[in-house]
C-alpha cells in the first residue's frame, strides 16, 4: 500500500514538529555560538566607553605571537598523549582481569568504577592533599623511605605529570566499562576453540581478543581525546594553571581570558582553535572509526 500524498505530507510536518524543539535548543547553544564566536574573534574588546571595532585577523596574529598560548597547547598535547594511552591500557587490563571469574569480582569492579561517579572537584580536593609538601600522602611515603620533601604541584617540571596521574586514576574505570561490554559480547566458543587448537594466552590475546576489541579501542580513544580537551575542572582547584602556566590547558586558558582577564575577544579566538581541534577529531572519527570493519 502506497502512502497517499496527504499522509506523506503529514509525515513531513509531524517529523519536523517533533524534532524542532530539540533542534532549536541545540542550534542556540552549539551552532549559533560556533558562528558568533568566529564573528567575535574578528573584533576588538568593547568596553563601556569604547565600542568594539572590526580588527580582522589581529587577534589571530596576537595568538601566533602569544608564548602562553603555545605553552598551553603543548601542555594539552602532552596531557592528551599521556592520559589517553595510559588510561586506555589500564582500562583494558582492568576489563581483562574482571572478565575472568575471580573471587570478589564485583567488589573489585566497584572500586575500579568508583572514581567515575565522583565529581572532578571532589577528586581534585582529595589529590591536592596527597600532593601537599611534607604532610601529603606522597611525601609521607617518600619520607618513610628516607626521601626528601617535594613540592609536587609547585614545581613546573612535575606539576603537569601529577595531574596526569590523577586523571588516569579518575578515567580508567570509565573506559573499562566499554571494554567489559565488548568482552562480554565475544563468544566463549572462540576461546574454547583457541584452547583446543593450542593457542597460549598471549597468542590468543594478540591474534584474537585485541583485534576484536579494536572498534572499542577506537571509540574509547576518541572519547578520551575529547575529554582531555574538555575536562579542566581540577585546574581551578589544584593549580590554577600554574606554576608559570606549566599546567594550563586550552579550555582553562580560554576560561581565564574570558572570566579573569575579561578579554572575551581573545577568548573567542582561542575557542576557534579549540573548536577546530575538536572538529579535526570528529573528521578523524568519521574517516577512520566509522569505516572500521563491521565483522558480523
Amino acid at each position: 500500500m502506497k502512502p497517499t500524498f496527504q499522509l506523506r505530507y503529514w509525515n513531513q510536518i509531524n517529523g519536523w514538529l517533533l524534532v524542532l524543539p530539540a533542534v532549536f535548543m541545540i542550534s542556540l547553544f552549539t551552532h549559533y555560538p560556533i558562528v558568533s564566536n568566529l564573528f567575535h574573534s574578528l573584533f576588538s574588546m568593547g568596553t563601556a566607553t569604547r565600542p568594539e571595532i572590526f580588527i580582522g585577523l589581529e587577534n589571530y596574529k596576537y595568538l601566533l605571537d602569544d608564548d602562553i598560548f603555545w605553552k598551553v597547547l603543548k601542555n594539552n598535547f602532552i596531557y592528551s598523549l599521556c592520559t589517553v594511552p595510559f588510561s586506555i591500557g589500564i582500562a583494558l587490563c582492568m576489563a581483562l582481569l574482571i572478565n575472568r571469574n575471580i573471587r570478589g569480582r564485583s567488589l573489585v569492579r566497584m572500586s575500579f568504577f568508583t572514581p567515575t561517579v565522583l565529581p572532578m572537584i571532589a577528586v581534585a580536593n582529595i589529590w591536592l592533599f596527597f600532593y601537599t609538601p611534607e604532610y601529603g600522602l606522597f611525601d609521607q611515603i617518600f619520607g618513610f623511605f628516607g626521601g626528601d620533601s617535594h613540592n609536587w604541584l609547585g614545581n613546573p617540571d612535575s606539576a603537569l605529570y601529577c595531574l596526569i596521574v590523577m586523571v588516569i586514576w579518575k578515567e580508567s574505570g570509565f573506559f573499562m566499562v566499554f571494554y567489559l561490554a565488548a568482552l562480554q559480547q565475544l563468544s566463549p566458543e572462540l576461546k574454547e576453540a583457541g584452547l583446543v587448537e593450542g593457542s597460549g594466552s598471549w597468542y590468543y590475546f594478540r591474534r584474537v581478543t585485541f583485534p576484536l576489541l579494536m572498534p572499542t579501542t577506537l571509540f574509547v580513544t576518541v572519547n578520551a581525546v575529547v575529554n582531555s580537551f574538555k575536562l579542566v575542572d581540577h585546574l581551578v582547584i589544584m593549580t590554577k594553571g600554574g606554576p608559570d602556566n606549566a599546567t594550563s590547558l586550552l579550555l582553562y586558558y580560554i576560561y581565564e581570558n574570558a572570566f579573569s582577564f575579561w578579554d572575551t575577544s581573545y577568548a573567542a579566538t582561542l575557542t576557534v582553535v579549540l573548536v577546530l581541534i575538536l572538529a579535526a577529531i570528529t573528521i578523524f572519527q568519521f574517516a577512520v572509526v566509522e569505516k572500521r570493519i563491521h565483522y558480523q
Binding site: 558568533s36 574538555k230 580560554i254 574570558a258 575557542t271 572538529a279
Partner: peptide, 24 residues
Amino acid sequence: VVFALVLLQLMIMPEVLLVENYRT
C-alpha cells in the same frame, strides 16, 4: 542533514563554547 548537525553536539559540548553561551 539535521541529524548530523545534532550529532555535532557530541563532540563540541556546550562548555567548550562557554564564552558565547555566557553572552547568550
